[in-house]
Nucleic acid binder design. Structure first.
Lengths: 373, 373
DNA sequence: ATGAAAGCGCTAACAA
DNA sequence: TTGTTAGCGCTTTCAT
């Protein structure tokens, strides 16, 4: 709460110039031991904490890496307007109640972005970078991203969080790595997973092993992930000489299981397998199916995509395709580091294989093995 | 990669002064609409991204909150020396291999700190703060924490990560909130959980419901969490008029299950229940017990503490006490916000109840309900 | 080995 | 409404 001591204070107390103080911390061995000790002692006595802002300003580098994601815990309620930093919202002084925000719901945590973040955080630590986490909704993205971008030397962005032109601007001055967004000439680096191959392997399993013929793809195809997964699904059908649907059954949201199942039931169009675009949707659909008295996988097989923890907790456990999220997060930082140290290197794109995880919801017993794609 | 445009560039291009540019972003409605548009246009054209460092320096506030934790993914290998920012380690240019770091091990993620972090991140977003994540090992803590502290307006620290004097220094200039560390006159704010009450309830359940009489507490008691949990355990034994052990069975690490079980077996000292200080240890012990052909909970009941996701994935599912981690993380930020806006307020301490989660490893069937302590 | 001094990009009085 | 100007705390030549 008191005013923080600065180099000037330390210098004065140690009886040296501010340059010497700076040197003492930056290149300790270029300073005479006795003065070094004096400076260190003064710093300690004062409780000196160097300002990273000032240092960043002076050096032109911040030593931090940023990760920007949508906030998916957002309930749409009471957010403080961006930029209104330090302000208090209506409930600011009411203590937060335990369990008010479903503290034990492993369906909501960890999700894809959490695992990615874990990897990014780990690799940042290994390489000595600080990690800045930013979140936002599409609406305020320009403000927020700009706020984050101003604090870091590079940035990773999750899909569907920022307009391309904003990313373009930013990438002109620092490495920007897009996750789960296929590379196209946008000057950005990319880290992706083999969505198509993964979904192809999954669908092949349903067709070859379980002899299912009436499969339905459920989920959005207006995202690049969705498109690629749907393509993998169709490729498998084509290879098996099954009728190839032009369009999937689209879901309004990843928790729209109830409506989808109701619709299927109403139209008496329940297939043998519901191949979902992502785990969350699959889980929501399994809930709805169970509620409607339909056995999974007994009457309908259901599969997901991503490999979230929720899928192994679920009953039945979820057959899915797992993305190597920790590894992808780490790779993002590696690319950033590389780009920062090789300013003339062009953007980098890297794709990881996905892993088919066979569990119970496709009709297999727990004894089956995971299969690498 | 190019030099970033600054206020000066924008001002020049828009034909105004730098102050006007600054105003345009800070107080848009105090600027004539026409000039505002001109400035915005220039900024957009240039791809202007304001430097948060410069702003922070000038304003004396950063608008960011920091979270500091130990890095528990640390394998002890190849870390880049702190401060060597931007450098590349030996493997810097080798792509990271998928699955090299156990990408699908839900025993290692999410852990306690991950869930806390989730809550902190969420509340930071709600209140318009950026979140800076720092990690380190005890060794380099002074350097690292100082690096983080220099970038934020307040700081949360996980237990056993920093020496008290360092925290004391920092707390003299910004709010510092300690997690899972009981308050004592140190000038820090504290967010804790009722460890003793939680463990008491758990132990009561073992004694009253399962009629167990030979219970053993396993784990460290050299941490404040450990002490409080052991105290709760003993209180339950005392209330049941059972013999009260002076000391617990101490574990070298949270994955020392094999050694512990081997020791117990060698001494023929296997109790009816192993009450573990934390989930990770409990899970490790269950593994060892199973490997030794001992049925859990058939022959020995095993319980944990924390409420990690791994406990619900485990076979048998783990009876434990859950901390409201998301909520605790959120509360940390609320306290920080409050303190930042009420500089003369003293430190705040808040304790949350823990929740007894009865699952299978104590001998109960899955039909049992969670009980609030 | 140490000091003097010129910025780094932005904010906020204070003037105009 | 807009411009001038003095810092914010630190790094880094360049002298000494």
């Amino acid at each position: 709460v008191a005013k923080a001591p600065t180099v000037y204070d330390v210098a004065q107390r140690a009886g040296v110039s501010i340059a010497t103080v700076s040197f003492t911390f930056r290149r300790p061995n270029q300073v005479k031991p006795s003065t070094r000790e004096a400076v260190l002692a003064a710093a300690r006595a004062l409780g000196y904490v160097p300002s990273a802002n000032a240092r960043g300003l002076a050096r032109g580098r911040t030593g931090a890496f940023g990760l920007f994601a949508l906030n998916y815990l957002d309930t749409g309620a009471d957010q403080v307007p961006p930029g209104w930093v330090g302000s208090s919202d209506i409930h600011a002084d009411e203590p937060i109640e335990a369990n008010a925000y479903s503290d034990d719901d492993f369906r909501r945590f960890p999700l894809y972005v959490d695992e990615i973040q874990r990897g990014v955080g780990f690799e940042c630590w290994r390489r000595g970078y600080a990690l800045m986490i930013g979140a936002g909704s599409a609406a305020d993205s320009r403000t927020m991203i700009t706020d984050i971008a101003g604090r870091v030397d590079g940035l990773a962005v999750l899909p569907h969080t920022l307009p391309e032109d904003v990313l373009g601007d930013i990438s002109r001055r620092m490495p920007v790595i897009a996750l789960s967004e296929p590379p196209h000439r946008d000057g950005l680096s990319h880290v992706t997973v083999d969505n198509q191959g993964g979904m192809r392997a999954l669908t092949d399993h349903l067709i070859a092993h379980h002899r299912l013929r009436k499969l339905l793809f459920v989920g959005p195809v207006d995202t690049s992930d969705g498109k690629a997964r749907f393509a993998g699904f169709r490729a498998a059908l084509r290879a098996a000489a099954l009728p190839i649907p032009r369009r999937p059954l689209t879901a309004g949201s990843s928790t729209a299981g109830a409506e989808l199942v109701a619709g299927l039931l109403a139209r008496q169009a329940m297939p043998q397998a519901l191949v979902c675009e992502m785990d969350e949707l699959a889980l929501s659909i399994i809930d709805a199916l169970k509620a409607a008295g339909i056995a999974v996988p007994g009457q309908v097989a259901v599969t997901g995509f991503d490999g979230l923890a929720a899928g192994v907790i679920n009953v039945p456990t979820l057959t899915t395709v797992r993305q190597p999220m920790l590894t992808m997060g780490r790779e993002v930082v590696r690319i950033f580091d590389h780009l920062l140290n090789n300013p003339d290197a062009g953007p980098i794109a890297r794709q990881f294989p996905a892993q088919l995880i066979i569990r119970e919801s496709c009709g297999c017993g727990p004894e089956h093995q995971a299969v690498q794609v």
